[in-house]
Structures are given as structure tokens and as C-alpha cells.
Write a protein that binds this DNA or RNA. Structure first.
Lengths: 187, 187
DNA sequence: AGGTTCATGTAACCCGTTACATGATTTC
DNA sequence: GAAATCATGTAACGGGTTACATGAACCT
């Protein structure tokens, strides 16, 4: 089933690396730059319950002697499928305008769950959409800039720069995948 | 009387430029790169009602002959005060980690509602916090990079680049305010 | 006269935030 | 034996999304 929050996908992605408990996941969000996700129990435990209810993960309580009881979650095959579907769906213009965070999350787990071919395809699609969006921002700045206050203009300029940076990143990332592919083929 | 969503502040900021209707505001969100806000009526009209209930804006129905009836909103003095307080509060580390969008929104309306002095102060504070955050991301990449998949590493690299771009932007924006101040003084 | 745009709203649903609660285990 | 940390949860609240509803004015 569709209808999962970003947090749900982040959890699914992390659980695909290895089985983890809710507490493990909270620590990851608290101690790593991974997304901007909340490490609060009120977000994570309900999200795990929803994933389980939808059949995307299953869990088992571990009571290793001497250790605290932990409920370990792992994705089901249906969960893996749903994740990959979400991850590899084509990039549309609106993703670049309104959902850059989601795009980066999708890419973060690309190697592990979809492979290098999908990673390269993703980067190409992203580069295309970003390259298409930047001129429209420039155009807006050119047309509307005069009647905007300085700080507004500068804020827009900041947005443009950040998309330019993103575009540059996709290109350098693509080069890395290309190099890797060549080396792999040579071996 | 705190507790306002980002959308609430965006609306307050726009209403400070000139009185507008809900429909005006929707069009702005639909047709400008302003934030990533929703232009859906289900978001905007309730948000305006909340602002009015909290005394931050007031509204009046206009029935100019021959025109459609429009409800025009404008900020109250208490609304202006609340906006400026939010806008000029000191920048903390967590803002840079979790709330860059909010920071840019605060800055967008800086000239109009707080003035150039506050704008420069804001940029200095932002530069300081961003400059402090970047090394910790680099450190994380250095320590954890080896055990991360390529796509994860690249995603993190993208985040670092975007903070570097933001830092560069704050500096160039600061130069602009400095220049402007000098020119103003010379006059 | 009929379709489009203007303009304002409401209701169900989902989910994140904040705060609270509970108990076990480790640490000093 | 007290405090901190581990570990899992729940409940109230706020607010955004989606979808639906309504009617007036404008266009052809």
C-alpha cells in the first residue's frame, strides 16, 4: 500500500541495512546528520506500528539473557518491494520544487536496495529536472526582483545558488558512478 | 501566544507588505518560489482564521461594486510585534540543523519589518552557526564514511556542499549590506 | 446559456510534537 | 541504594492534505 510518510521510508531504509529496534533508530536520528528526522519516541514507535500493520515490517521481541528486552524490526519482502518502488519512481518537476528532502532520502539508500544502475538513472533524472528549474528561478528574479525588497531578493538568490550546488553535485556523483562502472567492467 | 506554524508566519509576513485576501495569498504560493508552502485552501483559510483568533490579524469583507466579495486581512500591531520577535530572535545551532527553511523565511522579510541592522546581525549569526556546523559534518563523513554505502556517502557530501553554499551566500549578502551602509552614510 | 475563473469555506484523515508514564539494567 | 541510561510505549493537541461544496462574476 502507498501512503507512507517520509519517516516511514527512512525507517524502512534503515531496517533494510540490518534489523534494529525503535531505540536504535532513535539513536541514529539523534546522532547522525541523517535527514532532519525526529528522534522522539512519539514519532518513531507509532510509525513502526503503522509499518507493521501494513505488512511492510515484522518484529520480534529479543530477550537475550542479561540484556534489556528489545523489539527488533525487519522489513518483509513486501516492504522491500514497496521501498524500491518508491525509491526508483521517476523524478518529476514537482519533486525538485517541493520535495528535495525526499529525493535525497531516496538516493541515500540507492546502492543498497536498487543498485548502481538505478543510482545513475536517478542522478540523470535529477540533473535534468534541476537544470530545467534553475532558469525559471532566474527568470522570476529578473522579472520580479526590482519590486522585491533586498532581503527577499537575496533569499531567492540563496535558493538559486543551492539548486546550482545540487546540480553540480549530481554531475560529480554521476562521474563517480561512471568511473566505478568502467573499473568494474575492466576487472 | 506563541505557537504558530511556519505557514502562519509566512502569511503574516506577506500581509505586512499589503493587505491581501486568502485568494491573493494562495496565488502567491502557487506562482512564486516563495517557500515551499501549500496553496491549498484547506491550509490557508484555517491558518488565517487562527491568526485572527489569536489577534495577530484582522479582516474586513470588501464589496466594491462590480467586484467579487473579498475578505482582506491585515496584521494588527500585536501581529507585527509577534512577527518581529520571531524574526529577530537569536539563531541557535539547532536552527541550522533542523530549520534552515524557517531561517530563510525569517530573512526574506527582514528589510521590511526589522531593517538593515537586524538583517546584518542575522547574517552574522547565521554565518557563525553554519561555520560551526560544517566541520562536524566533515568529521562525521571522515569517521563513518568508510562503513557507509557510496550513495549514502554522496548524499552526505551533498548536504555538506549545500551548507558551504549557504555560508558563502551569507558572506556575499553581508558584503552587500556593508556596502549599502557605507553609501548611506556618505550621502 | 454554459464553462471558466474568482473566492471562500468545511470535514475526515494522517501524522508529528510534546509531555507523560513505566520498568529494567547499569553505574557510582 | 540512588541516579542515569536503556527501552518501549500512550494521549492530547495542532495543523497540513485531500476532497468536497458553494456561489458569484466573467467570457464566448
Amino acid at each position: 500500500m502507498q501512503n507512507d510518510s517520509l519517516l516511514g521510508y527512512a525507517l524502512l531504509g534503515l531496517l533494510q541495512q540490518e534489523p534494529r529496534s525503535g531505540y536504535d533508530l532513535r539513536k541514529i536520528f539523534a546522532n547522525s546528520p541523517m535527514g532532519t528526522f525526529s528522534d522522539s519516541p512519539g514519532a518513531i514507535y507509532p510509525a513502526l506500528q503503522r509499518l507493521e500493520k501494513r505488512g511492510l515490517v515484522r518484529s520480534r521481541v529479543h530477550e537475550s539473557s542479561g540484556l534489556r528486552r528489545r523489539r527488533l524490526f525487519r522489513p518483509t519482502s513486501s516492504g522491500k518491494r514497496a521501498f524500491k518502488t518508491w525509491q526508483t519512481k521517476p523524478i518529476i518537476a514537482n519533486d525538485v520544487i517541493h520535495r528535495v528532502d525526499e529525493l535525497m532520502l531516496r538516493f541515500s539508500f540507492m546502492d543498497e536496495s536498487a543498485g548502481a544502475v538505478h543510482a545513475a538513472r536517478f542522478l540523470k533524472g535529477l540533473a535534468k529536472e534541476v537544470a530545467a528549474y534553475i532558469p525559471s528561478l532566474r527568470q522570476f528574479l529578473k522579472v520580479q526582483g526590482a519590486r522585491m525588497p533586498l532581503s527577499g531578493r537575496l533569499a531567492l538568490e540563496s535558493g538559486i545558488r543551492s539548486y546550482e550546488t545540487l546540480l553540480g553535485w549530481t554531475k560529480s556523483a554521476l562521474r563517480i558512478y561512471a568511473r566505478r562502472k568502467k573499473r568494474g567492467a575492466r576487472k
